[in-house]
Design a protein around this nucleic acid. Structure first.
Lengths: 265, 265
DNA sequence: TCAAAAGTGTTTCCAATACACCCATGA
DNA sequence: TCATGGGTGTATTGGAAACACTTTTGA
């Protein structure tokens, strides 16, 4: 689908004719830095509200295409490893009066004709069934771009979520749950860490996701026995202690292992 | 939602005004008997085609409500343990010319007016996004009833699937995959076996699902150590061998265990 | 008394865990 | 040489797996 069809100008002129009514997608994109798990959120224009990156389903698209399009718009990345985790259809998930204000949309689509504006408002207030997708990205690879409704796109720590529209907070909770459940079948290390990393980096990542401490020695032995890590030169940190090795993943082995599941309980 | 709204007469008269366009649900219901895994399928009227029990989403329903409604219509059961496992949005999943014939629908809705019939045909040929749900039922508890499009509702062995409409074969494959993945968090024993069963019954069930043999002694010890089975009287089969005990689940313990996952690799 | 299947016991192996020990690094 | 954190070694435990032994049943 033509990316332009999702711009303010295009929608102001043509409305949402290119999209399937009633169906949307939302992306829960996790990132990891400063030893914390973050989620990608968009800040609304004109209101102190946030939402997940998401969008509508193009008439010529499948859900996965729509997600790839949206994530490409937000991050500049393609071929992101992602998986749908649940479809949300709650009857009371649509927009509430006290939440997103009509005049916010009026300001955003200020160039639209009055009748077009009515159509846009009607579209945005209809009932949507949304499918949630889960992705993980190493945040340094990402160039963030807000969408037509937002004025910024930021990484927010998952334990410091701001006010979110609709049921987006719930969607994030479900995504977290799924991530922990699917941890053994997901390339978390490859997705969330930079190309080269120390064993401690990998361990704290797992600790953050699992929310429990792991034994250092055992973690190291387990990882090394999987035969999935390539060891490189040492990282001289300047600290007064032994320098850790840098590692990277042997991708081929990694993805083969993931089919069986890399186990942590 | 009023169950009557899904009948031939009602639809012939009023069409699909009570349903959300473009959205449907499909149920993959597994059953277990004669030491084989079965799936519940509907045989189409006037054509040698089968499909999964499914339906459309009522305007006043959530997806889960729609599934419960459909399954109640087909089986007479309520409060079935079920879970959504995936939403399907493929662009080429909608009806193909060489598959379901228009005259089949004409025969089914023979009492509809010409204009109503056109509307029905248009509805049925639109693009649908469908969400697949997974359920398991002990087949002896079930009273089967076909839907408006079908003339029978039957248990079919999963390894002998007939010609299925759309992408329903694919949906079943995905459900099977999910079932194996979620096995440890799902009350398979409780759902698929009768109230009382022998240890061998339980073991072969697991073997059928996992598609691999398990050691008899180890299986027995493992199950008993979980402390989830109540042992009852022996079952006298009349065969010239030791009579097996009958067991039943301690439901409270069972569902508590499932939260953590009952483990088989 | 025999065959067949159920129930229980035994042994081995390996992974998970806990923790101890040595090593490298820069102050 | 000392504190600090990285890497490796070791002992223990418990479950998984393989398989042997005993018990029950009806012919």
């Amino acid at each position: 689908m033509d990316l332009r069809k999702n711009s303010v100008d295009y929608i102001s002129e043509r409305g949402f004719v290119d999209f399937v009514p009633g169906i949307s997608i939302d992306c829960v994109v996790f990132g990891y830095h400063q030893q914390r798990l973050h989620v990608l959120l968009l800040r609304w224009k004109y209101q102190e509200l946030w939402s997940l990156p998401g969008g509508f389903l193009g008439k010529d698209e499948e859900l996965e295409d729509a997600v790839n399009r949206v994530l490409f718009e937000r991050t500049g990345l393609q071929d992101i490893f992602l998986r749908q985790f649940r479809t949300f259809s709650s009857l009371n998930r649509h927009r509430k009066e006290d939440e997103l204000r009509e005049d916010t949309f009026k300001k955003i689509f200020k160039s639209a004709s009055p009748s077009r504006l009515q159509e846009i408002l009607k579209w945005l207030s209809q009932r949507f069934i949304t499918t949630g997708f889960l992705a993980m990205l190493e945040s340094s690879r990402v160039n963030l771009h807000p969408d037509p409704f937002s004025d910024s796109c930021e990484w927010i720590p998952v334990d410091q979520l701001p006010s979110l529209i609709l049921d987006h907070k719930n969607i994030i909770q479900m995504a977290l749950f799924q991530m922990r459940l699917q941890l053994n079948y997901w390339p978390v290390g490859k997705s969330l860490l930079p190309e080269r990393f120390t064993m401690m980096d990998l361990q704290t990542l797992y600790e953050v996701i699992l929310q429990k401490p792991l034994d250092r020695g055992n973690f190291q032995r387990k990882m090394r026995k999987l035969d999935v890590l390539k060891r490189h030169e040492k990282l001289m940190t300047g600290a007064a202690n032994k320098a850790p090795y840098l590692y990277s993943f042997d991708e081929e082995v990694y993805f083969k292992l993931l089919e069986e599941g890399i186990g942590f309980s």
